[in-house]
Nucleic acid binder design. Structure first.
Length: 573
RNA sequence: GGGGGCGUGGUGAAGUCUGGAGUUCACGCCGGCCUGUCAAGCCGGAGGUCGCGGGUUCAAAUCCCGUCGUCCCCGCCA
């Protein structure tokens, strides 16, 4: 609706974004999915103009004309023209709104979800819907270009008690038994490789019944993909193609390839996390050797016990005593035994509560290692390696993460450990039990140091997804189960249907899954994924719009052979 | 399972610390005036179980206990 339509008679249908009723003349901004245009109504010709209210759905006919001198609105794409109305039809009036359809109003999120259909009319939310669609379209475009087949897998599957809690669906035809909703299409996509599909992808809904977070919902979407005769390189190259295409589509920028790669060990050592945010420095530095001979008990005791002393330069920060005490408190919350702060003075000496316990050489070495300049705040932790890493990593992010996230820093973390220790002294898969170890013999003899062919995609410090080269040899699979303490009988009972499939000529294969909600929310600068999910749930799993989850009729339960335990609070139906 | 923030006309906020009449501001809604606005303006009006329950007090939005809802975080998320 621009100047090239001047003189044309048009009909616009949409919603009343705003009305400005001057009595003798009425201006109405009409909004549809494509934009906003100003309509001018003369109440002497169209008396109904006075009745218009926000969000009425209307159809207006009139002539497009140039706006009079001095009334052009440069903020509007259609601001040089207006429609002189000759006819007005109210297609549907609107009740008084629960909130206004504008971005600048912050509304309680529960209310937004209860009236999500109105919330989605807000420009930024409408743009999120568009962005999500375009992101998925870009993904499909790449997959199609690379010769992938989109294959659907079932959402009512067998429960495999492993990983997250399953969501269960009772079976009517087989009372007392349950389907599970898939946590991912993992095993089905591997069987598609056995089936000879070779290049598979799917935009898949996944379900994990764990507690909610800003970046976690009970149901979410993944771009799931898998390739036969593939190893890690093929997967990572494909991922780069996808990420570059989606970022180009949503941000209009061209990411550099190849993406940065860090091994898991490097990521943990330098950033204290397996999902580093590399948009800023403040890298963590090992100081253990600096304090190898230290007199300072807190450090020497930790080192003697096999721990580490590490720190990072937080740069220029507010260094009031209360702030510094707060950081120490925060470190304790995060599990550290303590935290040592040092503030670099103008003469390059260090102000620190522990300075008097440290030698001049040690202090000088710290300044040098951390490249410290006057005004810098240095944070040092002495602890068991993993604790030191996670505490410093968390503090680094809290002190350094840039506001907003316009920059994009994608990277791959590779060479994940195959296992992580469990509380009872055993081993749990750090990715999943179908992940191929790099060295099978070492995996069996030294599980602690075994590296697997697992990798993550990280964007701005958020885990966008993970994948791995899979085990295609039943012998290797059996050895992994052995390390995990899963007896062959148990493996057969839980995964037999899948393991049988591996015994009929399984091609080597590898794959990945990208979290679509997280990806789009980062590219849209949204602080949580609910903003890019049209109908999300609250932190307690409720949908304020529909009232889900709800109690159901006793007759319905009886049909399923289900009797509820008393006192669950859901029996007030 | 645990820690923290928030809950006040339809919406957003102030008032809560330090108890004293449901008080205030902006938007919306209703009525009136108004022919060039674009967050229109001006005048008038309606609209409340201060989330809910209990307690302390002469008196509770305010203090205490409990509970519900919501958000953030830890645990959890192969």
């Amino acid at each position: 609706m621009t100047e090239d339509r001047i003189g044309q008679t048009v009909t616009v249908a949409g919603w009343v974004q705003r009305r400005r009723d001057h009595g003798g003349i009425v201006f109405v901004d009409v909004r549809d999915a494509t934009g906003i245009v100003q309509v001018v109504l003369d109440p002497t010709e169209i008396p109904e103009a006075h009745r218009l209210r926000m969000e009425f759905c209307v159809s207006i006919t009139g002539e497009v004309r140039a706006r009079p001198e001095g009334t052009v609105n440069p903020d509007l794409a259609t601001g040089r023209v207006e429609i002189g109305a000759t006819g007005l039809e109210v297609l549907s009036p609107a009740d008084t709104l629960p909130f206004m359809i504008e971005d600048r109003v912050e509304v309680d999120e529960r209310t937004r979800l209860e009236f999500r259909y109105l919330d989605l009319r807000r420009p930024s939310m409408a743009a999120n819907v568009v962005a999500r669609s375009r992101a998925i379209a870009a993904m499909r475009r790449v997959m199609d270009r690379l010769g992938f087949l989109e294959v659907e897998t079932p959402t009512l599957i067998v429960s495999t008690p492993e990983g997250a809690r399953d969501l269960l669906v009772p079976s009517r035809l087989r009372p007392g038994t349950f389907y599970a909703l898939p946590q991912s299409p993992q095993l089905f996509k591997q069987l598609l490789m056995v089936a000879g599909v070779e290049r598979y992808y799917q935009v898949a809904k996944c379900y994990r019944d764990e507690d909610f977070r800003a970046d976690r919902q009970i149901e979410f979407s993944q771009l799931d993909l898998e390739g036969s005769f593939w190893g890690r390189e093929e997967v990572l190259e494909t991922l780069e193609e996808i990420v570059v295409e989606v970022v180009r589509e949503l941000r209009g920028v061209e990411l550099e390839r190849p993406f940065l790669r860090l091994t898991w060990q490097e990521a943990m050592d330098r950033y204290g996390t397996d999902k580093p945010d590399t948009r800023f420095g403040m890298e963590i530095v090992d100081l253990s050797d600096v304090f190898a001979e230290t007199e300072f008990r807190a450090f020497s005791a930790t080192l003697d016990a096999g721990g580490v002393v590490r720190g990072f330069n937080a740069g220029g920060q507010e260094t009031s005593r209360s702030r510094l005490d707060g950081l120490v408190e925060r470190a304790r919350e995060l599990g550290a035994k303590g935290l040592v702060w040092m503030v670099v003075q103008p003469d390059a000496t260090l102000r620190s509560p522990v300075a008097k316990f440290l030698s001049d050489d040690e202090l000088a070495a710290v300044v040098e290692r951390l490249d410290a300049r006057p005004g810098d705040l240095l944070l040092v932790a002495a602890d068991e390696w993993r604790t030191a890493a996670s505490v410093l990593g968390q503090l680094r992010v809290e002190l350094g993460r840039p506001a907003g996230h316009r920059e994009l820093a994608p990277l791959f973390v590779i060479d994940f450990p195959t296992f992580e220790p469990t509380e009872d002294g055993g081993w749990a898969p750090s990715h999943h039990p179908f992940t191929a170890p790099v060295d099978v013999d070492q995996m069996a003899s030294d599980p602690e140091h075994s590296i697997s062919w697992a990798y993550d995609l990280v964007l701005n410090g958020a885990e966008l997804g993970s994948g791995s080269v899979r085990i295609h040899d039943p012998e290797v699979q059996a050895k992994v189960f052995d390390v995990l303490g899963i007896e062959p009988e148990e493996a057969e009972r839980r995964f037999g249907w899948f393991l049988r499939g591996l015994r009929y000529g399984t091609p080597p294969h590898a794959g990945f899954a990208i979290g679509i909600d997280r990806f789009v929310s980062i590219l849209r600068d949204e602080p949580n994924i609910r903003q890019v999910i049209p109908f999300p749930k609250t932190q307690t799993g409720a949908d304020p719009l529909t009232g889900a989850p709800s109690a159901v009729a006793d007759t319905h339960l009886a049909e399923l052979g289900i009797m509820l335990r008393p006192g669950l609070g859901a029996d007030d139906r």
